[in-house]
Nucleic acid binder design. Structure first.
Lengths: 149, 149
DNA sequence: ACCCCAGACTTGAACGAGTCAAGTTAGAAG
DNA sequence: CTTCTAACTTGACTCGTTCAAGTCTGGGGT
């Protein structure tokens, strides 16, 4: 994912290639799962004149076009990442809020043919794991028994 | 789930039984998946003097003690429900934001033994389905093919 | 039955992520 | 080079949620 890749992504989505957009894409690449505020700060290290509104706008259109993915665990502000369309989920630390990627267990499509989908037309199943990250977890306690809810 | 059940739940969590708390519990029972504002309005139909702060406090402690469950789909405000510990997930309508319960496919524990949990100690896996509710979905289109992400 | 006090509530101000609106700038097609 | 509109800047604003300080009350102890 270098700058010419970003340019291609923008062009094939019929979006103009602008300095703010490239700067936002580079910021998201450098800071996966960062929130808008951090991304704004990161963008301004290379493009000091970019407004916060521009960052919101850019992240908005990039999400709409599937170039970045917006995630928002309960209790957190919106976060963004570049990995799209590659079937992965997220682990969120209950203590510090850190987010990490988790590859989907091979071949599994969790609960997807939900017996009763209530008449909804479902297009995505999002899985979020909750727990404690290595830094926050009490040391030594090992196994990660998890329950579905 | 009648009022004496609520009283029991509170007492066994070492929480005082107060009129505001009972009113909030009744409101959550009457309005599953409602946000704080709606619950406040519902509470005030029977207890007009209850402050908004009280509702926030009550929902907070009830969540901490596992008496109610707080959910917050991306882009939504916090919502609350009484069903706890019974293994169910949620479908959220992308168009109107409506939330419905979906029972977990029997015996499935989605992606839980995640091949690589990044050193996190996981205690819960939350599944959110995204799509269109019956009212918002274009009529007739039927199948609900879903992709994991 | 009464007292007492920490836990629960009221009041009112404040915070901050995100949005709205109006005017200006700059990609990129012709 | 010109033109047009998508994209950006600026600045005000909304609203869900939290903070802080003071008052009240459920329920255990006497």
């Amino acid at each position: 994912m270098d700058d010419s890749d970003f340019e291609g992504l923008l062009r094939s989505a019929d979006l103009r290639v602008t300095r703010p957009r490239l700067a936002v894409l580079r910021a998201v690449r450098r800071h996966p799962h960062a929130d808008t505020g951090s991304l704004l700060a990161a963008v301004r290290t290379e493009e000091p004149a970019v407004s916060h509104q521009a960052v919101y706008d850019v992240l908005g259109v990039l999400s709409e076009h599937g170039i970045v993915r917006r995630i928002q665990p309960a209790g957190s502000v919106a976060r963004y990442e570049l990995r799209v369309g590659d079937n992965h989920h997220h682990v969120v630390c209950r203590s510090c809020g850190t987010v990490a990627d988790v590859d989907c267990a091979v071949g599994h499509r969790p609960c997807l043919d939900a017996s009763d989908s209530r008449g909804f037309v479902i297009d995505e199943a999002e899985v979020t794991y909750w727990g404690l990250c290595p830094s926050c977890a009490p040391t030594a306690t090992s196994t990660s028994a998890a329950s579905t809810h």
